[in-house]
Design a protein around this nucleic acid. Structure first.
Lengths: 203, 203
DNA sequence: CTCTTTGCCTAAAACCTTTAGGCGTGGGCA
DNA sequence: TGCCCACGCCTAAAGGTTTTAGGCAAAGAG
């Protein structure tokens, strides 16, 4: 739970709560992790800051703007983690590390992760950390021997697998079957490593 | 646009419109494809049937129920297409066919595809066509030489790639970069085929 | 021809979004 | 020290979605 300034008492005109776009986005991200990104609402946020709803509209254009900002935050956080994980690693070591960044982030921050999937309008997308992510995946691939355009293909494949796996797993899609997802995850990473090591030549 | 019964005239009490859960779900799916799954709303549906909102609640428990039903419809349609595509094919041929089912469906029916990703509660998930999908992917893998548990790992990998790729591509994630996604898609499928053909043994 | 069921309606409460305008409070400036 | 203005949160209000409760008329059964 968020613990924020309470001001329910009768004090006629109390000091300002100190709203900021920053704080709103942060609180929004926390809220997303608690109740799900789709339930992040301007009203709920106002409630948590113990402030009237309209007050938030000075700091955030509208609901969509709020969600966009949360998405950007999540992408940034993810990229930071990825950069950390990649530092000093190469080859399969780096592959596993990067893959786990996404998976762990999704587990620790499901709401933020969902936010990272939020459909951004082109301008926001361009200004997002999405570019950093692509760059880092490319960096990771330096440990393998791939030229263009295969490198781009590989970047996209890795992105697809990471995102696809994590999002299916989070959605419970792998639940009711036998081998635990932990084992599958490591075998999938093995397989990807093998694949990248011997990427099939164009026909 | 949906073309449905209009009854705006002054006829005191006109014949019933003929609402059914079926028709609502169908119209909901169409609506999803037109405006996006997240904008599918009981109100909008009522508007399209030219009927009062409350009338829908006899056919659908609530908004969540409606969305769940649309999701189930989409999963069913997808499974039907997959079954068609898989019939009479094996090996890489089958792999490509199945993969394209997902991709094409997402392109033709973005709203329905989004619906298929809707988080189902466990009961609904169990009753969904999700099982059929898993079975078909397993069937596809008969063309490759995989024993358990590797087969399950492979099923999950394929699911991840298909879903991940399609959903990133739909979200515009592959937009601003050079090689067109068509080429990547076919190279990714090549790669998967190669990988399945020589699945790395457990360590 | 009456009875019951079915199907859509009115009414109403609760909640979220968004805009417009108001008014203290605090920081800046003299 | 004191004045002023911008900032920060508020009230008010309109419009949309969700959901429940209860009503009335038409359609179909006996």
């Amino acid at each position: 739970m968020l613990t924020l300034a309470k001001r329910k008492d009768a004090t006629p005109m109390t000091p300002r709560v100190g709203l900021t776009t920053e704080r709103l986005v942060q609180a929004g991200a926390t809220l997303a992790d608690e109740v799900g990104f789709d339930r992040v609402t301007v009203s709920e946020l106002a409630r948590r800051f113990d402030v009237k709803v309209a007050s938030l509209y000075s700091h955030v254009k509208n609901s969509h703007d709020l969600k966009t900002r949360i998405a950007l935050l999540a992408l940034e956080e993810l990229a930071d983690r990825a950069a950390d994980a990649l530092a000093g690693r190469a080859g399969k070591d780096a592959l596993v590390a990067l893959a786990n960044v996404y998976r762990d982030y999704a587990r620790e921050h499901p709401g933020r992760y969902a936010a990272a999937q939020f459909r951004l309008d082109p301008e926001a997308a361009a200004a997002s950390a999405g570019v950093r992510h692509a760059k880092m995946t490319r960096a990771l691939l330096r440990g393998y021997d791939l030229d263009e355009p295969d490198q781009t293909h590989a970047v996209r494949l890795l992105g697809s697998v990471f995102h696809g796996y994590v999002s299916i797993e989070m959605g419970g899609g792998f639940s009711h079957s036998a081998p635990d997802t932990e084992e599958t995850w490591s075998r999938v990473l093995d397989a990807l490593d093998t694949l990248l090591r011997s990427w099939p030549p164009a026909p």
